[in-house]
Amino acid sequence: MAGVTITNVSKSYGDIQVMYDINLEISDGEFVVFVGPSGCGKSTLLRMIAGLEEITSGDISIGDRVVNEVAPSKRGVAMVFQTYALYPHMSVFNNMAFGLKQAKTPKQEIDKRVRAAAEVLHISEYLDRTPRALSGGQRQRVAIGRAIVREPDVFLFDEPLSNLDAALRVQTRLEIARLHNRLGSTMIYVTHDQVEAMTLADKIVVLRDGRIEQVGTPIELYENPANTFVAQFIGSPKMNFFGSDDLTDTSQESFKNIDGEKIIGIRPEHLQACEDDKSMIKGKLELIEQLGEYALVHLIAESGNEFIVKMPQPPKAAKGETLNFSTQDNLVHYFDHGSGARSV
């Protein structure tokens, strides 16, 4: 068992810098999710921890040991790839045993560990099959099994669910959460899906353009996003932003002097329909997305600014009709207009 410490890590490919001065502390046993849009460097960071990418500058430590120059297999990490990356010509058993065989583990021990892992992942009956004869979900479990048998200090997951269909994704997500509870190992998980990030993580690291935007628990990021990027990235549908010209006189009073310098953010689930005299924000109804348990109502403010309201019931209004919304003061987020940074 070990934590991971990343100190001043940068990465360049030739003249192109892709990671800038990353500092991050991951505690032993923690489930950390790297999240961000594609190209933000989350996979690169994971691969640097794995040892598949070299570090241009800085240090990565696993436990007490700096591993910059240590071979991937000697770092005490195991990785689950997005494409599974199983050995197509080997049986499931041999796929899982491959790493142990390379380490010259005694045969009996290999057998014991592979069967134990297969038991946990419910793939015992497929041990003699080749990956070709398995479904996507089963293959992913073999890939996870291959990581488990090595008993690593740190598990690395590179978008492990993105090749699975929606139902299987939810199920496998749950299994990964259970696995973390059972093993208690440090896990680092890369995804672009903020729902996966929110549900799995003890700690989320939001990345953008090779920089860390914010680190925190899912709830911290949801309640106190550090900037407009994090605010929009965490939460679904994403947060609405309003300038001073979107607000009614009532809201101008209740919100602390919004001027051109500041914008406010309100999550779609924090806006409620209200009477005209209490209205803080007005919008013309554009369309309604019915999702059964709730409805997503798309509106356009007078300024042309589009926003979304999440409502338990769809409003009984026609397209183009103006609707009024209010919110509570403590659910409003203030950001600097220029930098996008949070301002209190």
Binding site: A50, G51, L52, A71, P72, S73, K74, V77, A78, M79, F81, Q82, T83, A85, L86, Y87, P88, F98, G99, Q102, A103, R146, R150
Partner: peptide
């Protein structure tokens, strides 16, 4: 050959020869 398969073998500790 997908490069991930080779990376997986590297993570599994395979030498270049293996």
């Amino acid at each position: 050959i997908p490069v991930e398969i080779l990376e997986a073998s590297r993570m599994d500790g395979a030498s270049t020869f293996n």
